[in-house]
């Protein structure tokens, strides 16, 4: 198998995730897009790990999974809080950071 197969798949997923982050308005959807990005990175790590016969990529991928879990937990807690306070999680309605 070509290593590029996996790397290009990762690149495609990454760019789809970027599009999602930019295009989505719903905060939960943005979080999902971020998960896409993280997974594409993981795919790259694993591919390189196999390519070089090195375990570090696997280790890092595990770390990313752990961090992603934490990030989703906190992110969703924030979304819930925002929703409870404002009855909306549309990101462009949250633009009250005007001082």
């Amino acid at each position: 198998m070509l290593v590029n197969n996996f790397l290009l798949l990762g690149a495609v997923l990454f760019c789809i995730g970027v599009y999602g982050v930019i295009a989505r308005k719903n905060a939960v959807m943005v979080l999902m897009s971020i998960e896409l990005i993280l997974n594409s990175v993981n795919l790259n790590f694993i591919a390189f790990s196999t390519l070089h016969g090195n375990i570090d990529g696997n280790t890092l991928a595990l770390f990313i999974i752990g961090v992603a879990a934490a990030e989703v937990g906190v992110g969703l807690a924030m979304v819930l809080l925002i929703f409870r306070n404002r009855k909306s999680i549309a990101l462009d309605e949250l633009s009250e950071m005007k001082g």
Partner: peptide, 21 residues
């Protein structure tokens, strides 16, 4: 200072995401 920085943080997250990426 803060006032001048304020417009940077108008909360248009997606626009800034687009610019960043």
């Amino acid at each position: 200072t803060g006032g001048a920085l304020r417009p940077l943080q108008s909360g248009k997250v997606n626009q800034y995401g687009a610019l960043l990426f």
